[in-house]
Design a protein around this nucleic acid. Sequence first.
DNA 1: CTTATTTTTTGATAAATGTCAATTTTATTG
DNA 2: CAATAAAATTGACATTTATCAAAAAATAAG
Lengths: 186, 186
Amino acid sequence: MFSEYFNILGSISPIGELCRKKIESHLTIKEFKKGEHILHTGETCNHIYFMYKGCNRIYYYKNDKEITEWFTSEKHFCFSITSFFDKTPSHLSIETLEDSVVIQLSRKGIDELIHSDLEFANLFINILSGSLKLSQKRMDSMQFETARQRYQNLVTEQPEILQFANLQHIASFLGITSETLSRIRS
Amino acid sequence: MFSEYFNILGSISPIGELCRKKIESHLTIKEFKKGEHILHTGETCNHIYFMYKGCNRIYYYKNDKEITEWFTSEKHFCFSITSFFDKTPSHLSIETLEDSVVIQLSRKGIDELIHSDLEFANLFINILSGSLKLSQKRMDSMQFETARQRYQNLVTEQPEILQFANLQHIASFLGITSETLSRIRS
DNA sequence: CTTATTTTTTGATAAATGTCAATTTTATTG
DNA sequence: CAATAAAATTGACATTTATCAAAAAATAAG
């Protein structure tokens, strides 16, 4: 079960047998039913989560409304960025959208490894730079594209999200109301 | 002149004398008049820039209009994220908004150091995680705040930008037209 | 200092999106 | 499968922001 995990890590940055062993000692596996929370608001995010099976959405409340900030598809990583790095309670929640199996890598392990293992440090750099590119891309699309364009982009670039997310999740993810998204779709 | 640079690096992540020496060998200093370009569209971004003196804006063209994506204040870092990591021609340009002095750290040096020096790798991780937090924060504000709120945030959180950026730069940075910003201001 | 150029402001109008309410459709549960 | 709850759609209208054009103000150049 970890072999697929390490294959994906390896495709991000090469890691040797020794490094794998070290990483493995900081992994835990958890299962979640659809709709359960991987991380609750107020908890501190102490892991980087890998969706071995299933998917999730990351959301927060703004004026009593749920706003979906991000989706994580199967075989992808996620975490609450600010909470993880600042060790502060998360304003984000992470909720599974299907029955899921999550492989968690602890921050304690990450801290230890980035200070002791060059291979791991470089792996982590590559994970961060990948996240940064994604975040930047999304920011650009928010800055000067219309709701319709943003929806089109989603359909062409991340069609898998349409499979598991409902209209309200997608609407708030795109920064629009569900009524507007419904009209765009028709 | 480098001492201030290293103080700032050191405040991000502790680095010893040896690491400093190694970094120093990959630094170059460049001066720019106001309005000159640190990076042109189409060039590949091969450095991380530190604004020792002066400031800049990072912009791109969309439908023949300039869109400012980011501002860099004095004593801060910047680079074209996608171009730097993917080694591809930048769609962004970086233009100074004042006479400036830039300390450039080369990608060649960065590549070398992250693979050989744990201290540097950790420094770089901290630079990336800081960028990621900023990027995320900006994305959130784009997602569900009105133009007026985004402007208010800018005034309270980054007032220095108002000193060197003109109305059009700020408007496109906020994702609105200059007419709208002018009305918000009055 | 005067003229030219660029930037900002203002006005009128159009387009995009939001809000609220009602209805229809879909999903859930006993 | 009927009853209920939740989600999606639709309509009427309000609000925000964009667009285009012109005027005013600020900046740069001779």
